[in-house]
Design a protein around this nucleic acid. Sequence first.
DNA 1: CAGTAAGTTGACGAGATCGTCAACTTAGGT
DNA 2: ACCTAAGTTGACGATCTCGTCAACTTACTG
Lengths: 209, 209
Amino acid sequence: MSSAPRPLRSDAQRNRDRLLAAARELFAERGVDVAMADIARHAGVSNGTLYNRFPTREDLIEAVFADRLEARAALVAQALADDDPWRGFVGYLTAICEFQATDRGFNEVVARDLPPSPAAQRLQEERQAAITQLMDRARQAGALRHDVTVEDLAFVVCGISRTVEITAGLAPQVWRRHLALLLDGFRPEAAHPLPEPPLPPGLLHAAAG
Amino acid sequence: MSSAPRPLRSDAQRNRDRLLAAARELFAERGVDVAMADIARHAGVSNGTLYNRFPTREDLIEAVFADRLEARAALVAQALADDDPWRGFVGYLTAICEFQATDRGFNEVVARDLPPSPAAQRLQEERQAAITQLMDRARQAGALRHDVTVEDLAFVVCGISRTVEITAGLAPQVWRRHLALLLDGFRPEAAHPLPEPPLPPGLLHAAAG
DNA sequence: CAGTAAGTTGACGAGATCGTCAACTTAGGT
DNA sequence: ACCTAAGTTGACGATCTCGTCAACTTACTG
């Protein structure tokens, strides 16, 4: 049933690694729209080899950010390990935003919110479940307002995304202020009725927490 | 001192109007990166005429959105006319966000935050002064937390900008929920110390409220 | 009604980026 | 040692968009 993924020849593997490293670097620095030729050149490899390993730009993007997306799962676990529910919640969101703030490509990827690969799909759902748990815990501790859902975390990701984009070169840390303001809006003391229902589950993908 | 702006020939004026109308429409629909040729075609005019009237894309963008930017000034006045300071404040921000939500091009323009034209510069400063007044009033009424500044409104514009961008096709009204959450963070009941100083004045242009 | 400056046209060249391909090279097994 | 399939190369054609220009047309003035 499963395809037999015969291992790459040693030089091919080396080139693949170089391409990934080059892409990671250029994506982080200049965003995911850099010219493919630049990536190949930066990897010390020809144009054709790049297309040979990664037929489309999306293949390359997916390969580059796979580990980053996995890392997010680890972050939730770490947040759940925190004694203080609110601190855990805030810590998780801060960590995610730090990813966005330090990697332009990653910021663009979560902002674009493309449908996830079937592989990432499951990981995604697991993470969402864990986040729900994280939020429930904070809610029960009286630290989180009752009318927000996991889907509302997309607003955090979206909002910080743009702020980082604009202020990255001028005031690289102000996004923390934006985040703090937004988080104060998640507290029960501030809760006023919300005008719209939350986003239906599954409408957003990468951006959803 | 002032250059003598001799009036355009009648047909030239007509073509100019058509170009502006076409650009307004296509910008709103597809964003400010539409092909110049598309705009010309949509206006029923040749490529050369377009470049004749508007040598650069920026010239065209500026001409198209000049009135929109003026309209924002009117909005502040309207907000100040409201008896309830908080309602006025919220109404103003909501109105601005509605601009962004209904016009993709406008949303992109405020998000790009290019340095304003010298003409818009003064208008900008006047508006900022009026907004400061609007915020002071709300603060004195005990409706707005004390540690936020005009510059913090950029977070509203930025945040909603991205949310609108992503959700426009799926849930065109959810940005109101995002805005409501963010605004609850502006209330004094929720106020917790902010981690970063506000943006220095003048760093951001269009996005700053 | 005619002359002229203002305006319009659409084809064109420059420049960028993409993805492909036929020829060439090399790793790794026998 | 040698053969073959896997891998690499870099030039190339296709596509797209921009901004220009020389030739043509037209509105307005006297």
